[in-house]
Nucleic acid binder design. Sequence first.
DNA 1: CGATTTGTTGATCTTACTCAATAATCGTGG
DNA 2: CCACGATTATTGAGTAAGATCAACAAATCG
Lengths: 241, 241
Amino acid sequence: MTTQGKFTVSCQNCGLNELCIPHALSDTEINEVDAIVKRGKPLHRGDYLYSAGENFDSLYAVRSGSLKVFTIDDEGEEQVIGFYLPGEILGMDAIHSGEHISSARAMETSSVCEIPYDQIEDLSSNIRSLHVHMYKLLSREIRVDHELQMLLAKKTAEEKIGAFLMNLSMRYEQRRLSSTRFRLPMARSDIGNYLGLAVETVSRIFTRLQTQGVLKVEGKEVEILDRRALCDVAHISERHG
Amino acid sequence: MTTQGKFTVSCQNCGLNELCIPHALSDTEINEVDAIVKRGKPLHRGDYLYSAGENFDSLYAVRSGSLKVFTIDDEGEEQVIGFYLPGEILGMDAIHSGEHISSARAMETSSVCEIPYDQIEDLSSNIRSLHVHMYKLLSREIRVDHELQMLLAKKTAEEKIGAFLMNLSMRYEQRRLSSTRFRLPMARSDIGNYLGLAVETVSRIFTRLQTQGVLKVEGKEVEILDRRALCDVAHISERHG
DNA sequence: CGATTTGTTGATCTTACTCAATAATCGTGG
DNA sequence: CCACGATTATTGAGTAAGATCAACAAATCG
């Protein structure tokens, strides 16, 4: 196991960057964190990373690909809770009960790093900056969820889709990927489910935004042609990331 | 400053119970936590506990009354994010940035305990069980938010209101208050805002559920007459807490 | 390459929103 | 304590947005 240099290389787009780098751990501390991470768990489209009801052992950082997190409601219907992109961390909702309440599936070929939770607890007892950072990580998830709540409480379907696309755009931008051209890893039905809209409505709004020259949509490929207009549709201000 | 006995008395219905008791801290440790808590910050209806943009210094545990947390969106519209009842903890979304992104206002005469965050950080460096417990507390907020997302993605207004009422009912039950008769501390407009419904719709659904004999509604007083039926309306299974 | 899943488009119907009027409740000061 | 205005809640009528149903097109996969 090695130093910060190799660490950043080995997990460049991975949530571990967030877990470690921003808090300026010492090389020794980086190594300690590095040592507990299991690299490169590969997943194929449709594979479960974990399922509701299973014991919670680890957090996962997405390295590549993307996953959806969902629960099954009392009618047996899937309810999508969120989509996770490279660099984002899954599983934090399970810490409280020690049991997964949601399931996570890969939406495409993906790879994740596994971070055993008991070892995070141990390590963060000793490294103060790590447990302070863990608080921030958890807090950010809460914040992200609150932003999503605002999105879901939005009135029209157009607003929801607009805000959803802007949200994805900003997340890709943070990951140093194009914020104007990207691939939607999820099915239309997942988007609809997530936003509380019928699939047909999602499809129609995409078509409409394309007709208006706001977007270019080709299957799962999306290009934001007029960012300003998309913000207007979403009723959000241009600078929001 | 005293021992667990006094502690539980001084803050019986307060979030500090959650902060301390469940993890079986030693008396000495309880005292340490006890010492950093500022008791009884009183609030009148409409008072702000904190506002978006302010520096984040403390978490707050509701002792009595109730508060709403909300943001102002880019059109200047209030967007309600959540309602906080006695025993619940506010402010966790601000840890990440060190700045409040939402505002909190008392919906009625309320009192809260203030828990300075830097002292939590200090203390949880030394008391392992405290930082483990903080993870759980933050994780639970994430989980609660995910449950809310599911509620908001529900299709019909009736489902949303039904699930909302069941959610309140269960929260009151956890606080050893009646789960079938309680007072809605928030205005109809807040409920509508929170659930993404027009005020009129909220009102109509209440009336309809009353006509169907599911509820008895008298202004802000609500009685759940048929819990089973309300679960059906909400499309949730009877045991869900 | 055919079968199956996923996405688009159209027509119709339902739900919840909007606008408007009225009723009840709350808070304040006489 | 009651009267006042102001806010909050209810109810009704008309409308618009999105759901549903249904057919078809495109993409994906073995």
